[in-house]
Amino acid sequence: MTIVLNVNGVERTVDVDSDTPLLWVLRDELRLTGTKYGCGIAQCGACTVQIDGRPVRSCVTPVAQVAGQPIVTIEGVTGPEADAVREAWVQHDTPQCGYCQSGQILAAEALLRATPRPTDADIDTAMAGNLCRCATYPRIRQAIKTAARTLEGRRS
């Protein structure tokens, strides 16, 4: 069926089965390959995108369910939080293989918009769904704190 999606602020029309997970529509149809597959069952977070600003596992999200809603992927995430998170990721040289990092960054960006000064417990909760098999967790934690400090500095 024909479905109209709003991805990174652009309207995209796709012709797919309505139960196709958003992940495979983004990748196979729209070639937005920054969103990754890791498990297909909402266990790893590699496929994290934002819908209406909130992190969502695209591998278990039927595409028809999000027609018309604002979808943001790693290729399109912008704004002060996104900038601060990317800068902090670069400063701490967080990625190893890098495969999980699109999902980590989208989860971290959403966390900082909702909770500008996250505690360790906030980070544990918000990032619990994002596996990193390379175990870059210490740097993810540091980078989130760095980004929070940067944002605070820029606000004041």
Binding site: T73, E75, R86, W89, P95, G98, I105
Partner: peptide
Amino acid sequence: TRAKTDGSAQY
């Protein structure tokens, strides 16, 4: 690192 923070790294 940069390519691994903006989705452009190709796997």
